[in-house]
Amino acid sequence: MSEEFEPKIIAFVCTYCTYAGADLAGTSRLKYAPNVRMIRLPCTGRISPMFILKALQKGADGILVSGCHPGDCHFTHGNFHARRRWTVFRSLLNFVGIPQERVWFSWISAAEGNKFAETINKMTEEIRKLGPFKQYQQLIEEMETPAKV
């Protein structure tokens, strides 16, 4: 590969904290890696593990789940549900062979534009080191062309 690998990161964020934090990074004109794509949800509690799987299937190399700090959830405790679900799901992913370093979790408040930009930059670098996420595509290819006996 002559060109440097550009990872694709899909971020599932809540609208009240992290989405607003990302907006703040924008209004503060902070610069960060253009590798992230945001999916806005009302609350991290809305994030189903299926979204993460879908994103990986679509070709994401890294996933970020980010919401309000503990105790700050607009819906009082949606972020706790998200954290619990994410913790279990991440180890499950690990079990089926998807490196858990690809699935990140963070608390970024509406006032933390800086933290958002830093998180995205750091994550882009880390995922770049891991390289592209190919397992899913390989699996699909293998299923389409059964191995010769």
Partner: peptide, 23 residues
Amino acid sequence: CGTCVALCRSNSIDLEGFTEKQI
């Protein structure tokens, strides 16, 4: 908030405006 949607085991709840299909 949609917390119930992500928890529902039989996918019987959906959130208007942020449905499973939409996401």
